[in-house]
Amino acid sequence: MPERVEVTISVNGRKHRRQVEPRMHLADFLRHELGLTGTHIGCEQGVCGNCTVLVDGQAVKSCLMFAAQADGQRVTTVESLAEEELHPLQQAFKDAHALQCGYCTPGFLMAAAAIAAEGRRPSREELREELSGVICRCTGYENILIAVERYLEDRGEVEAVGG
């Protein structure tokens, strides 16, 4: 029996207690232990950013953090966004054709959610840099930038994302 550690991690506002192997990374924890498969795994080496989630409000790559490290912390995943209807950020992606295959979209949504949660309104060039940690192979990025910009502009009273 491999060694296990107990973790209690709050994910999208719900606490989950599990026994996990220390080597299990947070992305696998979300997907395999909790069945939250919205967090996608592309490269598993911190390059593609598709597995981006928020940990205590900060965007991180969940493949580069062990679940044991997130013990006691608040994790927010893409599943926190939509309820009955698409979240305005997701709607902005849909409206701007900011996704094609959609594999990277959870990563972009969470990277954008972190910017929104901090109340920032970066310029186009700053936004390009802010989102540079997620790789998309379909869209050419322009529509993603447009979607995030529109969302940040129109956000108004929309509640900031965060668990």
Binding site: Q58, A59, A111, G133
Partner: peptide, 9 residues
């Protein structure tokens, strides 16, 4: 150095 997610950690 890296990208924003990397720099957060």
């Amino acid at each position: 150095v890296g990208d924003p997610q990397i720099r957060n950690r």
